[in-house]
Design a protein around this nucleic acid. Structure first.
Lengths: 191, 191
DNA sequence: GTCTATATGGTGATAGAC
DNA sequence: GTCTATCACCATATAGAC
């Protein structure tokens, strides 16, 4: 359980890391944005890397929670829709944390990367299980599960590169569009 | 027209930027990898940013060339397949340049970002025109063109985050899988 | 829990010799 | 076209007072 100051630091750090990138954000920048001294920051966190690690961890734990809820839905199509909507909603509602988690992975040392990657793998496995279930029950076509899961996550995750809040669509609506595109396909059945 | 040394610098820089990130790669790192002094680098490039800019420019120019070739194919389905294959092939054959271009955009100053973004927009417009053509001719379903184009590029571009050369599949094969998934859809027609 | 001051080393970039 | 030496600055992180 983090103190209030600790959380304030994480929020502001996630905002700055998202905006300028982790490497391009200095501890000085962060301290100034918070109205604190650098030394005060180092009272709450051992290092800048630990701040990144904590943000990534919280983002993935929240996302995993969403994924589990969605995959509990019995019907596979509905479960996939909920999974995709949930992912998009989590992204939009926790954009700084989510983006920092996805963009910052490369900046973590191998020791700190490992637990993050393990969580990410659990999340992806949740999606693969959902797809496998749909294929076995005949709702989905029999396709390469790993590649299909990657397709779903590619669609959703690439939103960090173009989606800006305040646009015409909510992230959840984009996810729904992708879901229908993915399910029914691009090709016109008439021709 | 670049000299041989200039090109050698760009190649090595793209490799390092891809591996560690642009901000985390110092001019010192680059000089050591090339067996040159920092001062020698500054004879060939005005700044580290100019190196990033040159790499991004070359990557996008090559990609745009591929895109034009694909969209010249008359039948829309075939054109889309060629577009996606061409994108994936360009990625795999020019991975350091391609990845640096996609990841480094945020690190460029607004002045240097602008021409890069303009080229990227031209490339994306090529894809949108291709999709529009397919929808008007009745080959594709009538969908939001901008969002459909984003879906295609999301699938392809997210490969920079997971695709590693030497794996079981070539990037082009992944693109073909995505193409068929996108065209026919995930849903089983039997049910 | 926050501060000022500082340690230590690396950063992008340049001067000027060869 | 490359080098050695150096500039001016900023990085992460810490010591010790309050």
């Amino acid at each position: 359980m983090g103190t209030a100051t600790r959380n304030r630091i994480l929020e502001e750090a996630a905002r700055l890391f998202t905006e300028k990138g982790y490497e391009a954000t200095s501890v000085q920048d962060l301290a100034e944005a918070l109205g604190l001294s650098k030394a005060a920051l180092y009272h709450h966190f051992r290092s800048k890397e630990e701040v990144l690690y904590e943000i990534s961890l919280q983002a993935l734990e929240g996302l995993l929670e969403e994924g589990k809820k969605a995959s509990a839905v019995p019907e596979a199509r509905e479960a996939l829709l909920r999974f995709m909507e949930g992912h998009a909603r989590f992204f939009e509602e926790n954009r700084p944390f989510f983006v920092t988690m996805l963009q910052g992975l490369q900046s973590l040392s191998p020791e700190k990367q490992a637990p993050i990657i393990a969580l990410r793998d659990r999340y992806e496995e949740t999606l693969r299980a959902l797809l496998r279930r749909g294929m076995e029950s005949g709702v989905f076509r029999q396709l390469d599960v790993a590649l299909t899961a990657r397709a779903v996550l590619s669609l959703l995750n690439w939103m960090i590169r173009w989606f800006r809040p305040g646009g015409p669509l909510r992230a959840e609506e984009v996810a729904r569009f992708y879901f229908h595109l993915l399910l029914r396909g691009l090709e016109n059945g008439d021709s």
